[in-house]
């Protein structure tokens, strides 16, 4: 009975894998045939299985080719979240970003802050978290070695290594939280509507502060009914309709 059940599970898993593979190939074929809209739809359907950096990346490519700039940027950003070191994603995102209308000068910030954040973007929050846990455990083992080591050189080495690993563990934990906070506290969003006029207040009659266009990245600071308060890279703040943006 147990055996049959196991067999069923394996079979089911295999079926899913198989259909995933088939869907993937179908979408790829559509993309190769330059039927970008259909390819984008095919990729969009695959999100029922879950997510993956490559899936987001391909979906974004198809979207870009079918002239959906905002959605393309959104999906490149999502892909980059899952795989921050991927060269292709970074290249295409940078390329597509050149196509968008708004060229927003980012706010000049202290270079240390800049570096600190840039380093955080290299890995996902979980990667940082795992690194922290592993280095913490390694640190503890080295403490053991230091306490009960026979040779003096070994004890010295393990002492300093443990010290370094402790520091490293704290450092990576900080990043794990920093990256997490970046995603959760003021999440980034991409403008999907062609043109959005940003108001000074969450109200249609509010003064128009500035206008942003499809593909622009904003930070969502707060939400009030159907309005979101956003901040641009250049530090400007205003309110816009939440329907015009989508969080990464």
């Amino acid at each position: 009975m147990k055996k049959i059940f196991l067999l069923l599970i394996v079979h089911f898993a295999f079926c899913i894998l198989h259909s995933q593979e088939a869907d993937w190939k179908r979408a790829e074929q559509l993309y190769a045939d330059k039927q970008y809209v259909e390819a984008a739809n095919a990729y969009a359907e695959m999100f029922q299985y879950g997510e993956s950096a490559a899936l987001y990346y391909n979906y974004a490519n198809a979207l870009y080719k079918s002239n959906q700039l905002g959605l393309a940027i959104l999906n490149y950003e999502r892909a980059l979240r899952l795989d921050p070191m991927n060269d292709d994603i970074k290249f295409n995102l940078e390329f597509v970003n050149k196509m968008k209308t708004d060229k927003i000068e980012s706010l000049e910030r202290f270079f240390m802050t800049e570096w600190f954040e840039a380093l955080g973007r290299l890995f996902t929050s979980n990667q940082w978290a795992y690194a922290s846990i592993i280095s913490f455990i390694a640190m503890l083992l080295l403490v053991l070695l230091y306490l009960f080591g026979k040779q003096v050189w070994m004890r010295k080495l393990s002492f300093f290594s443990a010290f370094f690993l402790l520091f490293f563990s704290v450092f990576t934990m900080v990043y794990a939280f920093q990256v997490k906070g970046h995603i959760e506290n003021n999440p980034e969003a991409i403008v999907l509507a062609g043109t959005v006029s940003v108001k000074s207040s969450p109200d249609d009659s509010g003064t128009e502060v500035f206008v942003i266009h499809e593909g622009t990245k904003v930070n969502v600071l707060s939400t009030l009914s159907s309005w979101s308060e956003v901040r641009l890279a250049d530090g400007n703040i205003g309110w816009l309709q939440s329907s015009t943006i989508e969080k990464i």
Partner: peptide, 19 residues
């Protein structure tokens, strides 16, 4: 832009942030 990724990836359910 660069071409799509042609090797089928492992599609997993979205990860939770553990931190």
């Amino acid at each position: 832009i660069r071409y799509i990724n042609t090797s089928a990836p492992k599609i997993k359910p979205a990860e939770r942030i553990i931190a």
